[in-house]
Computed example of a mutant assay.
Amino acid sequence: MSRIAIKICGLSTSDTVGAAVRAGASHVGFVHFRKSPRHVDVGQMQSLAAIAPAHVERVAVVVDPDDDMLAALTAGGMLSAIQLHGKESPDRVAAIRRRFGLSVWKAISVKTRADIAAADAYVGIADRLLFDAKTPDGAALPGGMGLRFDWTLLRGLALPMPWGLSGGLGIGNAADAIRITDAPLVDISSGVESAPGIKDVDKIMAFCKAVAQC
C-alpha cells in the first residue's frame, strides 16, 4: 500500500510549519479568509510557505476568491496549489487553473450521497477533490469546524483523479477514517489544535504518527 499523504491545514506559525514537516506531512495549508481564526495575510503566507522544503506541497486555502486576491497570494512563487473552499463552479475552477498555472483543489461539502455525486462535475477540471463535512446553514466558516460526515458514503469511491478526506479527523479516529474510506490523503486542521486557530506541535506529531501506522 502506498504511503498516505497528510495535509496539516490552517498553519500560522513557523514552529508549527516546522513540526508538520518534521512529522512527515506531505502538504501544509495556509488559510486566507478573514472570518477564520486561522487567517494569515499575504505576507505571512509567503513567509510560512518559504519554510517548507521543496518536497512538501504548499497550499493556499481560499473561499470564492477573485483574481486580484489570487494574484497577490501567488506572486511570490511560494505556493504549489490553490484550494477552493467556497461555491466555485466548474467553470471558475477551470479559469483559475488556466490563469495561475498551479494545481487547483476543490473542496466538496458532504452530508448525503447526493453531495458525493455532485463532485462528478469537477472531474477532469480540478486537480484534486477534497471531501469535507458540510457546515450548518448560516455558519461563518465553510470548514475547519471539527465536523465530520458519514465516512461510509465514500466506501468504494472510484474517482479517476486524486482526492482526499477532511472534516472531523483526529488522532483517535485517523485509523478508522482511512480503513473506511481508503482515502489517499487526509487533511486535518482543528483536530490538531489546543484552541481555535492555535496548532499544537505534539498533536501534529501524534496525528502524523497515527496515519503512518495505517
Results as ranks from 00 to 15, higher is better:
residue 1 M to Q: 13
residue 6 I to W: 00
residue 13 T to D: 04
residue 15 D to Y: 07
residue 17 V to I: 11
residue 22 R to C: 08
residue 26 S to Q: 15
residue 34 R to P: 09
residue 37 P to N: 14
residue 43 G to S: 11
residue 43 G to C: 07
residue 51 I to H: 03
residue 55 H to C: 12
residue 55 H to G: 11
residue 57 E to Q: 14
residue 64 D to G: 08
residue 64 D to I: 14
residue 68 D to L: 07
residue 72 A to E: 08
residue 75 A to F: 09
residue 77 G to H: 09
residue 79 L to F: 07
residue 81 A to F: 00
residue 85 H to N: 10
residue 97 R to P: 06
residue 98 R to G: 04
residue 100 F to D: 11
residue 105 W to S: 14
residue 107 A to G: 10
residue 108 I to L: 06
residue 110 V to G: 02
residue 110 V to K: 03
residue 110 V to T: 03
residue 112 T to R: 13
residue 114 A to H: 13
residue 116 I to P: 06
residue 121 A to H: 02
residue 124 G to A: 04
residue 124 G to H: 08
residue 129 L to N: 01
residue 135 T to Q: 14
residue 135 T to P: 03
residue 139 A to S: 13
residue 140 A to F: 03
residue 141 L to Q: 10
residue 142 P to I: 02
residue 147 L to Q: 02
residue 151 W to V: 01
residue 163 W to V: 02
residue 165 L to M: 03
residue 166 S to I: 02
residue 171 I to M: 09
residue 180 I to Q: 10
residue 193 E to V: 13
residue 195 A to I: 09
residue 198 I to D: 06
residue 200 D to N: 11
residue 203 K to Y: 03
residue 208 C to T: 05
residue 209 K to P: 00
residue 209 K to C: 02
residue 210 A to H: 04
residue 211 V to Y: 01
residue 213 Q to C: 06
